[in-house]
Amino acid sequence: MKPRQIVIDGLWRQNTGLVILLGLCPLLAVTGTAINGIGLGLATTLTLVCSNVAVSLSRCLLRPEIRIPAYVLIIASVVTTIQLLMQAWFHDLYRVLGIFIPLIVTNCAIIGRAEAFASRNPPLPSALDGLATGLGFCLALVALGAFREVVGHGTLFSQAQLLFGDFGELLQLTLIPDYPGFLLAMLPPGAFIALGLLMAARNWLNSKAAQLSRADRSAVQPAVERTA
């Protein structure tokens, strides 16, 4: 597979959050704010890159019968490491995300990429695949988080200091002052509705793009016929 193909697949065409719909539990649960989305998205991305590389390196050593337990072990060790790192360096964010950091282990997207890609490809493409898939998931998390935060609280990137320290204070935006708040967007049903709307938006963009490319082709074809 070409690197370009891998990147497009991970970010858009086979986006784990919006197309394959894997890892919905963290996707819906932590996206109350954009910053939570970025935090969990980056942690998941790091996990995906590390686990993909490790799985890819060990692919010739493992017997197929025991590959799944081995993947689980690899992913669990990576997640534990990341959990400890976050506990040390981003302690406040770690406390906000809570149980969802250790639960990255159960994110089906990770074992999915290990099984579908890393176990059949060399380490470098696997790392790229992990990066692209992770960033695609991160993108979905941030979009969902930003949407829910703006609709629910009228702010954007609140609590950015959890992730970016002092610089984060500057990032916080209050888009609508005196906003009464829209509780539904913060509640689980709001997460489902927002995810549905995001998926609809993605499908709409896709169909627009398909229409455009068809229009391009049909615009070219008659010209060719006429000259023929």
Partner: peptide
């Protein structure tokens, strides 16, 4: 229901 749970 949307307005009931959003703006109690």
């Amino acid at each position: 229901v949307v307005v009931l749970i959003s703006f109690p």
